[in-house]
Computed example of a mutant assay.
Amino acid sequence: MKLDDATIEKKLLHFPDWEYHNNAIHAEFEFDNFKDCFSAMSRIAFECEAQNHHPDWTNVYNILKISLSTHDADGVTNKDFKLAEAIETIVEVEE
């Protein structure tokens, strides 16, 4: 179920790396080098498969940009926050 803007903003208080715009939540992570970034992406990919929920993401050298939204709901849902939480855990381990 699509969350309303107020609910999304409230949930984002627990996700300081993330912001909400263009009907999705977005984060950008910087790593020491490409290898560390790609390693995190690989770990995130396994989590995405486990949750059957996949990000729109881009990687340039050591920067990973991620956007999460639920296409079926045409907006942000609890699935996106669940995946964001997992991504945060993976990125923290990498750093």
Rank of each mutant, 00 (worst) to 15 (best):
I63S: 11
F81W: 08
K82T: 13
E92I: 06
I66M: 11
F46A: 08
T77F: 06
E49R: 01
S39N: 10
V93M: 11
K82I: 14
I90W: 01
D72C: 03
D72K: 14
F38I: 09
A45Y: 01
E49Y: 05
V93Y: 04
S42H: 03
A50H: 01
D74L: 07
H53C: 11
K82F: 09
E92K: 15
D80C: 02
K79T: 02
N62V: 01
T70N: 09
I44A: 09
H54L: 11
D72T: 12
I90L: 05
I63F: 10
S67M: 02
N78G: 02
E94I: 05
E95A: 01
M41F: 12
H53V: 12
F81R: 00
N78S: 06
S69H: 14
A86N: 05
I44M: 09
S42R: 08
F81T: 00
E94N: 10
I44V: 10
N59C: 10
K79R: 01
P55G: 12
K65F: 04
S42Q: 13
D80R: 02
V91P: 10
F46Y: 09
H53N: 13
E49Q: 03
R43Q: 15
T77V: 00
T77Y: 04
T70M: 04
I90S: 06
T89I: 13
D80W: 01
E95S: 13
E94R: 13
D56R: 12
A73G: 09
A50W: 07
K82M: 12
E95C: 03
I44G: 04
D74V: 00
T77R: 02
D74R: 09
G75L: 11
V93W: 04
E95F: 08
V91S: 11
E95T: 07
